[in-house]
Design a protein around this nucleic acid. Structure first.
Length: 325
DNA sequence: GTCCCGGCTT
DNA sequence: AAGCCAGGAC
């Protein structure tokens, strides 16, 4: 059992001052923070989020930006498909929801890039609804304090029910949820929990003498040398160029394994993060399009700024990925 | 289940 | 060198 009073009292004094928790932050801005925080630590998100919401404070403002500029602003946060989905999400909200982030969990779930966690996080933190918000931190805290296990099993629908049963019945449910996440992030951490600083009077894991994990150790998720790193290198080249670049400029970004490089480039084309111009060069998807993916494209006659290399209808790559491993 | 990112901590 | 992130789509 986790008693709301002790958790809320702890949170009142120990919470981190995170900008998306401050008063006056809009539902859209909270949604942006949740996209960025998917699998990405708070410290890396904070500066990007601050720049982002100052530049594009609303869904329609985000939708009006080009996909390429969105990818540039995303920088090296990682998982750039999130940036594309956020841009798509902004477009859907602007066009189909009158520029207002939906409040209903099921409607939120229908948005691009919004899954079980993010939908409920927005419903709870932006709209103060009493819905269970379950991320990796919450699952770990519940596994320990409630079930006496060192760490959580794979995510299931049961997790939502577990947390729903813990939520206080009154309007403090959102604070309880954010406090649970905060506890997992700063005290009940995965590797070196600081149990001496834990505000919970009762913890099943502690009561049972901190039994070791029964789960097999997770396979290490490497980064160096993976396709993900190669994709990052290629995108880094394109982020630094306002104009389409020649193939050779991408080739020099990764020379240790040319087949892997080709596979990474192909996957970026498939993901819609990169596009090929009619003359065979490469650019960030939506480069030069400042009206969003659904918006009207500028006609050639209107484009007199001289910074556009020409029409670039998206071209699908034709070579096969060449699976291996 | 697999893939997707990157910087930081330990 | 490896673990660790406020997950989602397939």
């Amino acid at each position: 059992m986790i008693y709301p009073d002790e958790l809320l009292a702890w949170y009142a004094t120990e919470q981190r001052d995170l900008p998306w928790r401050r008063p006056g932050v809009s539902a859209w801005q909270i949604l942006v923070s949740e996209f960025m925080l998917q699998q990405t630590p708070v410290a890396r998100v904070e500066p990007i989020w601050l720049e982002w919401i100052a530049r594009w404070p609303t869904p329609s403002a985000t939708a009006a930006a080009s996909a390429a500029d969105v990818l540039r602003a995303w920088g090296k946060l990682g998982y750039p498909r999130r940036a594309k989905r956020l841009h798509e999400c902004a477009t859907v909200i602007a066009l189909e929801h009158s520029d207002a982030v939906p409040k209903d969990v099921d409607t939120l779930l229908s948005l691009p890039g919004v899954g079980t966690y993010t939908a409920r996080a927005v419903a709870c933190f932006a709209y103060r609804q009493r819905v269970p918000v379950v991320d990796t931190n919450v699952r770990r805290v519940v596994a320990r304090a409630v079930h006496g296990r060192a760490d959580a099993a794979s995510p299931t629908a049961r997790d939502l029910d577990d947390v729903a049963a813990l939520l206080p019945g009154d309007s403090s449910a959102p604070q309880f949820s954010v406090a649970l996440m905060e506890l997992g992030a700063t005290v009940c951490t995965a590797r070196a929990p600081r149990c001496g600083s834990c505000p919970l009077r009762h913890c099943a894991w502690r009561s049972q003498g901190f039994p070791a994990s029964s789960c097999p150790p997770r396979r290490t998720q490497r980064y160096a040398g993976t396709d993900r790193q190669v994709r990052g290198r290629l995108l880094d080249v394109l982020r630094g160029n306002s104009f389409p670049v020649n193939r050779v400029e991408l080739d020099v970004a990764w020379t240790t394994d040319t087949a892997q490089r080709d596979r990474a480039l192909d996957s970026l084309l498939v993901d819609g993060l990169v596009e090929q111009t009619a003359d065979g060069r490469f650019a960030l998807c939506g480069e030069g399009d400042d009206a969003g993916p659904q918006g009207p494209r500028r006609s050639r006659a209107d484009n007199t700024e001289g910074d556009d290399a020409g029409p670039h209808g998206p071209r699908r790559s034709s070579h096969s990925p060449g699976e291996r491993r």
